[in-house]
C-alpha cells in the first residue's frame, strides 16, 4: 500500500529532520561561544569541543528513530513490508516525540552548553561539573527517544 508508506516515511523524515535542526542550532549556539572562549585560550579546545558536542545527541536520536522506521519497513536491504494507511499514521505519530522534543531540547541544551562554556572560560577546573548541566536538559530527549522506541515497537506491521 503506497499511502501507508508515505506516512511512515514522513514520520521518519520528521524525526531525522526536526531533531537534526534542534541539534544543529544547539551545536551552533555552543560553537559560537566556544570560539569566543578559544580566542582567549586556544588550549581549551578539548573542553570546548566536548561541550559543543553535547547538544549533538538529539540529531543522533532522531537519525536512530528515522532509520529504525526504515528497518522496520524492510527498506534497508530487506524485503519491504506492506503498510496500510492506519499503520503508516501510527508510525508517523510514533516518530513525533523525538522529532518535537529533539528540536526544542537541542536548542535549549545548546544554550546551556554555551553558558557552561562561559563557566569553564573563567574556571577551567569546573569542566566536570559543566558537562553535567547540559546533560540534565538532554534527559527529556532521552525520554522522548524512549517513547518513540516503545511506540514503534508496539506497532505490528
Amino acid at each position: 500500500m503506497v499511502d501507508g508508506l508515505v506516512f511512515s516515511l514522513l514520520g521518519s523524515a520528521l524525526a531525522v529532520g526536526l531533531a537534526g535542526i534542534g541539534s544543529a542550532v544547539g551545536v551552533g549556539i555552543a560553537g559560537e561561544t566556544g570560539a569566543g572562549v578559544m580566542t582567549e585560550d586556544p588550549n581549551k579546545f578539548g573542553q570546548v569541543i566536548l561541550l559543543q558536542a553535547l547538544p549533538g545527541t538529539q540529531g543522533i536520536y532522531g537519525l536512530l528513530a528515522g532509520f529504525w522506521v526504515l528497518i522496520k519497513l524492510g527498506l534497508l536491504g530487506g524485503t519491504p513490508v506492506e503498510v496500510n494507511v492506519a499503520q503508516g499514521m501510527q508510525i508517523m505519530v510514533s516518530c513525533l516525540p523525538i522529532a518535537i522534543v529533539g528540536l526544542l531540547s537541542g536548542i535549549y541544551q545548546g544554550k546551556t552548553s554555551a553558558a557552561c562554556l562561559g563557566l569553564i572560560a573563567r574556571r577551567p577546573g569546573e569542566t566536570g561539573r559543566a558537562i553535567i548541566l547540559p546533560a540534565i536538559v538532554e534527559t527529556y530527549a532521552v525520554l522522548a527517544l524512549l517513547a518513540t522506541i516503545l511506540l514503534l515497537n508496539s506497532i505490528q506491521v
Partner: peptide, 21 residues
Amino acid sequence: SYSRLFALGISTTIIAVLART
C-alpha cells in the same frame, strides 16, 4: 528517570545495527 539506562543502551545497539546496514 532510570529508564534512560534502557534508552541509551538500546540506542547504542540500534546505531551499531545502522552501521552494519
